[in-house]
Amino acid sequence: MSTLINAPQPQAAPLLSVQGLKVHFPTGSSRNAPVVRAVDDVSFDVPRRSIVGLVGESGSGKTTTGRALLHLIRPTAGQVLFDGQNISGLDEARMLPWRRRMQIVFQDPYASLNPRMTVAQIIGEALDTHKLAQDRRDGRIRELLERVGLDADHRKRYPHEFSGGQRQRIGIARALAVEPDFIVADEPVSALDVSVQAQVLNLLLDLQRDLGLTMLFVAHDLAVVDYLCDEVVVMYLGRVMERGPTRLVYETPRHPYTQALLSAAPVPDPRAPRQRILLKGEIPSPMNPPSGCVFRTRCPHADARCAEAIPPQRDLGQGHYAACVRIDEIKP
C-alpha cells in the first residue's frame, strides 16, 4: 500500500480552548444595577506545548481572563475546555483534580507568598494539598528550588530574606511542585528590576521547553511577548481585537489597535523609520462600552459602520484573525 509522504498531518487539539468567555461584575445588589464588562465574549485557543501571549493596555481584561480560566474568578458565561473537557461549571470540590494540572505565577512575587511561612512550607503546601511526594517531601522541595536556580539550603528561610527575582523563582517552584500541564504567568516580570527580568524570562522559557509546559503569558510589554511567545492575543476593553502567530501579527498587524500598540513599542535601533500612531481620548468605561466596535471611539480609521455591530473575528489565513469592518481598507 502506498503512502502519501506529503499528506497533511492532523493538527492536535489545543490543550485549552476558550469559547465566548464573559466575566461581568455587578456594581450593586439590584437586578438592574449596571455591570462591569471586564471580559466580554472572548475566544481563543492555547495549543499544546506553546506559549500564548495575552496583551493590551491596563483595563483590557487580560488578568481577569487568565484568572477566569483557572476559576479563581467565576466566569459569567462561556466555556473553558481543558484537554477536551468543559470545566466551566465545576464547583470547588470537582475543580481540585484540575487545579493540579493548572497553576498560576502571580505578578507580585512578595504579595503572593505567605510571609509567615518558610520557603519549604510554601512549596510543601501544594504537595500536601494534592498528596504528592509524601514519602520524599523534603527531597522534592530541594529539587524544585535547584530547578529554578535557588540554593536548596535556603528552604528554611522566609520570603523577606530574598530579593524580588528570587521570590518570583520561589513562586515558579511552587507552581511546578504539582507537575502541571498549564501555567498562567500573570505579568511575572513587571514588578522586577530590568536587570532581573531577562533571567526570569529565560528561566520560564527553559522550563517550558524542558518540561513540555503549555503557558498563557499575560503582559503589556510587547517586546517580551515577541521574545517569548509563539502566538499572541490582543485585547481591548474586554474583547479580542486580533490574534495569531506572534511573528505574523507583529510583521503585518491588521487591526488599528494592534498597529497603535506596536508603533509605541521600543525598537533596538532608534534610527529605524517608524510612524507613531497616537490614540485619541481615554479608554472607555467597561460599565458603558461603545456600541459596535469597542475601539471605535479612539480608532483613527473609524466611520459610521463601526458603530452598527460588533465586528466578527475575520480569518486572514495562517491562523491570523482580526475583528475590524474596515480591514480591507487599512494598510498593514
Rank of each mutant, 00 (worst) to 15 (best):
L69W: 07
V294P: 05
G89T: 03
V232L: 06
D45E: 13
G61V: 02
S163F: 00
R247D: 09
T64W: 01
L72C: 13
A126P: 11
G171P: 07
E231L: 05
R239D: 05
D303K: 13
V184W: 02
D128M: 13
T214G: 00
S195D: 12
T118W: 03
F217S: 10
L113P: 06
P300R: 05
S285Y: 00
D230N: 11
M102P: 03
D303F: 06
V294A: 08
V224E: 01
G319K: 09
P290S: 05
D226A: 14
L72W: 08
R137Y: 07
G53V: 12
L316W: 08
K280C: 13
R298K: 04
S60M: 10
C299H: 04
T27M: 15
R243Q: 15
I141L: 06
A133F: 09
E125S: 06
V18P: 13
L211Y: 00
Q11M: 10
L237R: 02
Q9A: 07
T129H: 08
A304V: 10
V294G: 03
G59P: 07
T27F: 08
A13Y: 02
A309E: 14
L216D: 01
A12P: 06
P14T: 06
G164F: 01
P47M: 04
R243I: 11
G84R: 07
E143Y: 11
A7F: 07
A177M: 04
G53T: 10
P290T: 10
V225Y: 00
S2H: 15
S112E: 04
F25L: 07
V224C: 01
V35I: 11
D153Y: 03
V42S: 11
K280E: 14
E187Y: 04
H154R: 15
L192E: 05
F217N: 02
A219L: 02
L204Y: 00
I141Q: 05
L150Q: 00
W98Y: 15
L16M: 14
R167S: 03
V42R: 14
R174S: 00
L72T: 12
T297I: 04
R314D: 09
G281K: 13
Y158M: 11
D153K: 07
